[in-house]
Design a protein around this nucleic acid. Sequence first.
DNA 1: GGGATTTGACCTTA
DNA 2: TAAGGTCAAATCCC
Length: 315
Amino acid sequence: MDSAGGYDEKTLIHELTQGLQMAEQLKVNLHSPETSEFLIQKILSIYDNALFVLQCGDSAGQPPAPALRAASLPESSISFGSPGSDEFEFDQPFLGRKGEMVLSRKRKGSITWEDEVRICSDNGLEGNTDDGYNWRKYGQKEIQGAKFPRSYYRCSYRNSQKCFATKQVQRKDEDPTRFDIVYKGKHTCNQRASPSPSPSPSPRPPRSPSSLLSPSPSPSREKHETLSNLRANLSVNTTDLGGEGGTVPSLFSFPSASSGVHFPNTFDEELFQVYSPTFISPATSEPNIFSEWGSSQSLDLLADVDADFEFNFLF
DNA sequence: GGGATTTGACCTTA
DNA sequence: TAAGGTCAAATCCC
């Protein structure tokens, strides 16, 4: 159970502490323009949220809708693995949100980033984890130790545009209103780049309430509405990120970084070149879904970052 | 009829 | 060898 407030005093202190840490990291990383820019974005975001919390309190028991907040990166952990592969493999075992080691049989290599999405069930959006992309479900699997099955989705444009992005959606055991969404691979399709109506395949709504894990693809207009609804009802849980164990800070987590953010030489450039257009710059006409994911997004770089990266992210 | 979902079987990896 | 991930035939829905 989350802290009832979500954004209580403790959280506020945590936010401010994070901001302080980010400022320190900024001081260390002034030589890197990209890193500096990123850290500035994060600091602004953190303090923006802190102010918002102070101003608005916690009337709804949930963080404020983050859509307009300075956001840059998805609430998530991102795992980087071996380079040069366009296959979307899996991340490393990682520390869970409560600090426990998540044992998984995931494959090494490639990039994943994980999001925890809370879906409110009182507005008909339950199970709608639409993130602006069109996904096609290709599998569902019972996962050991998990109460709910995991659903597997791939980009609807896998064939037509050779877009090999995939995602996994897992309803959380402890809170069925929340979903862990693990994105794998990159979108090479144009479905978010162009605001024109969605090309075939024509989307359709979920066929039944049982498809709670099926994000319903929708036409762009409906998608906008859906996103608007999500914006108002989607929250990203950050309260238990590193909460109890404290080993997974809600902002940065670098395995080898003791005090400051340290980007491997090839990493920071790749990261920012790749992510900036998507996560930081609201350049696209489509709503930047990642910018809606809240104020306290984290970017956890958890896996092997000792290799050169050749990834090209095209969202 | 075409496209999406379901689901059991098969494949891959640790 | 077990578990996670993917395939593909069957089924459903518009």
